[in-house]
Amino acid sequence: MIPFKLNDKNVEVDVQPDMPLLWVLRDLMGLTGTKYGCGMAQCGACTVHLDGTAVRSCTLPVSAVQGKSVTTIEGLSDDGDHPLQIAWAEHKVPQCGYCQCGQIMSAAALLSSNPKPDDTAIDNAMQGNICRCGTYPRIKAAIKSVAAKKVGGAV
């Protein structure tokens, strides 16, 4: 059994230790907001937070999260009211939406470590997340709008 914290709840899973966290979340826990896109940490669709840091769950063996805290899009906010989720809706960011959970998770990790990112910091934090529909300009605008509203750096 591998114990870890998932969206603030203690869970245990009985799986092959090398199974990537992505498939544990999707197939065993039923949390399908974390998406499969490439399986080799190239596209960012599977991004979750591990102890607050953005990681690609598709290449992270579940054994590596033992005793740690994992947050998925389902645990980011109570009802889609994280400032970034609100900004995503205001800026009408999504097209197909498939990559957007990963985008939001990467952006949330960025803002928690750097509340006022400039363009370069946004590029650096978000370059691992591909959007085939082409929503990058709106992603950037949405992140900036949240950064601009931040006072004192608190999310």
Partner: peptide
Amino acid sequence: PIVDMHDIITGQAQYGQD
């Protein structure tokens, strides 16, 4: 706004893979 906005940004949207 698109009708699927809330589902998409909260991870509830259901795709073929899901």
